[in-house]
Structures are given as C-alpha cells and as structure tokens.
Design a protein around this nucleic acid. Structure first.
Lengths: 212, 212
DNA sequence: GTCTATATTTAGATAGAC
DNA sequence: GTCTATCTAAATATAGAC
C-alpha cells in the first residue's frame, strides 16, 4: 500500500506536525515517532530541524501558490470565469487542507521570511492575462495598479479568511465542521457574484443608493 | 514619563514578544531582558511562562473583541452605518496593531483553545441590534442564521485579512508599509459600499447580468 | 540505513543573599 | 522586590555499533 521511502515518511510526518504546532512547537522526537523511525535518522537525512523545515515549507508554498498562475493566465476563460474557477478550486483544495493558510502566514512571519519575495508574485499578477482582461473591460490600456490589487486581494480574502479564522468563525456562528464545509460550498458560487458587484460598484464612484 | 510598575513592564514586554514570535518561539529570558529586569522576577510575579501567557492572551482577546458589541448594538445607527463604523474603527485600530489578528488566530489554535468559546460570540451576534435591523430590512421577523453569518463574516474578512496576510499582500502588490496603510485607508469607505452590494445581490437570487 | 546511547545546548524554574 | 547563581528538564544533534 503505502510504500513511501523513509525519507518521504519523515517529510510527510514533519509536514503534518509543523502545520499543527508550528516550527518551535514541534519536537524532532515527535516527527521521528510519527514516522515510525528513530530520531537519529532524521538528522541523517536532513541534517537539522531547520533544514527539514525549510524543505517542507518550500514544498508547501509551492503547493499553495503553484496553481495560481495557471488560473490567472488561461486565455480561454473570461475574467469572470477566472474568478469562478479560482473560487471553486481553492475552496475544494482548502477543504482538504484547511490549516494550510494559517500555517503559511504565521510561519512566513516567524521562520521563513524571504521565501515569498523569491517567488515574485508581483510580476505573476501584473503580467497576467487576468490583468490584461481587466484593462480591456475597463476600456483602457493602462490600469492603475491599485485596482489590480483589489481584483485579486478581495476574492482571496473572501476565500481564505474563513479558513484562517475557522475556530473563530465556528464559535461565532455555532457551526460544526460539517456546517462550516457547507458554508464554504455555498461561497463557491457567491464569491464570484459578489466580486462582479464589487467591481461594478467601483465603476460608479457615485457610491449609489441601494435598498438596504 | 513611562512610570510603569515592574509588573506592567514585564507584561508589556511579554505582549510584544509573544505577538512577534508566538508562545513557543518566545523565551522567558528575552522577556526579562526587554523588561529591563531579571529572569527570576518574571517567575516571582507570574509564577510561570504559561500563566503569564494566559494573562496576556486574555487581555489581548478582550482588547480585540471587547468593542464589537457596542458597534453591533447601538440603536442610534442604521445597519449600513454600523458597517461603516466597524470598518473605520477596526482599520484604525489595526493600523496601530497590525500583528494582532494573526497572533490571536494562530495562538488560539495552538495554545489557547477554549478562550474563544468562553466569550460566546454566538449570542453576541445573533441577539444584536444589527441582526434585528437586518431582519427588518428583509421584511421578515425571523431570518435564516446563515444570512447573519455572511453579514458579519464578509466585512470582517475584507477588513482583517489584508493585515493577517500583510507580508503576502505586500509581496503581491509591491507596496511598502506606507502604501499598504494608504490602501487600508481607502478600504474604510470601499468595504461598506461593497457590503451593501453584496447584500443586494443576495436578494436577487437571479445572479444578474453585469457589465464585466 | 538504522539503531542505542550519549553529548551538547537551551530554556524554564528555584534557592538564597541582599 | 530584586538580584546572582544554580538546578532541572527538555530538546537538538552526534558517535559509534550493527
């Protein structure tokens, strides 16, 4: 069945524990125990806790951001379809890995600063097909960079934040794990709709009168 | 000038370091050093690192959530004004304490689970004036609880997430600290507008055709 | 490659003088 | 209340046998 090499078993156990307890909260002994191997082997393969962590972290970041460019750069899909796809795929993914965002965000701050810079997401976003399509939709060739931030930060906020704040959201709403998942399922279709409306409302700087 | 008692100096230093490095990443020696006192005194006043942490954490949670009820329950303000006020005040607050949300979210998960439950935010939200005003606006006496979640989770997502993901957002956008603050300043007025439109779009379940 | 045993370092907590 | 010195425990890392 699970014919993983020793090296991979250690990496897998490390990934789980680092995510659960963070870098400093994780003991190498626990990683060894969960891998079903001895502590000495961990150092044999990875030299140190720090090195092991960096490896795991790099893979995790790539797992998280690796798919982003392909969503943003598909010339076959419209601007709106891109947001739909982004919502669906990221929510599906995060339902299987709900602790990933909080892990990445807090460990980047504490133990892996610099990793994000190296990926230069900046270019990835601004040179994307998404950015071009936005400019076209607005009827301009050049678009204020600030508008592009919103275009990407707002959907990501609405997708990721509930996972980051899951314990808080569950306490706030009284939902159990199942109810939480259902809520996120609904958001797959709601977020793109909201996003369209947010973009439209930015067009009419006249902040518009509404029913509520 | 800064005539704090020794006890308060320790607490203040602890707060700063716990926020910066998390519970397990913080050494009591560092807290002592930053307080300008000796390690032994820390234990004299607070008995243990754990006890000191719990105290600091409790105060931090109250600082963060303590103001929420007064925003949600003011009978003088409309639904929309409540969201406006919430956005303005929380963004102002978070500009002075940008690391607070990530700290709370990650430490609650690791070292302070149960603290949130004790505050039963659930009741605070559902019995709020805000919830009543929402029901009225919808022309109903009873409203599906799911709608209330959205009413509160969405603005909070849009307000808090950029702070939680600040390193990522700054890398993504290329903004410096100053530019980031300006972006958040703009969001004070944008978020309430977006929120109005999100609520309206939920009314027409016909997901509506729009310009983009 | 894998283990047991051990060295080394680090960090929390306390004893006891002042 | 505050300090120096020290104890104790925990956790990382390595030596050396198999």
């Amino acid at each position: 069945m699970n014919e993983l090499s020793t090296e991979d078993r250690i990496k897998q156990a490390a990934k789980a524990l680092f995510q659960e307890k963070g870098y400093s909260g994780t003991r190498t002994r626990d990683i060894a125990e969960r891998s079903g191997i001895n502590l000495a082997l961990l150092n044999y393969y990875f030299r140190s806790k720090q090195k092991l962590f960096e490896l795991v972290m790099l893979e995790t970041i790539q797992q998280f951001f690796g798919t982003l460019p392909q969503y943003l750069n598909n010339p076959e899909t419209s601007l709106d379809e891109k947001i739909q796809l982004l919502s669906r795929r990221y929510i599906d993914f995060l339902k299987t890995e709900p602790d990933l965002p909080l892990f990445i965000l807090s460990e980047i701050r504490h133990n892996a600063s610099g990793l994000i810079e190296k990926m230069n997401l900046n270019e990835v976003v601004f040179k994307s097909v998404l950015a071009k399509q936005y400019a076209e939709a607005m009827g301009r060739t050049e678009v204020d960079t600030k508008e592009i931030y919103m275009l990407i930060i707002n959907p990501l906020s609405l997708i990721i934040f509930p996972f980051v704040a899951r314990p808080m959201v569950m306490a706030l709403t009284g939902l159990d794990q199942n109810g939480f998942d259902q809520m996120m399922e609904q958001r797959k279709t709601l977020i793109p709709i909201w996003n369209r409306n947010m973009l439209n409302s930015d067009l009419n700087t006249t902040s518009s009168n509404t029913t509520i």
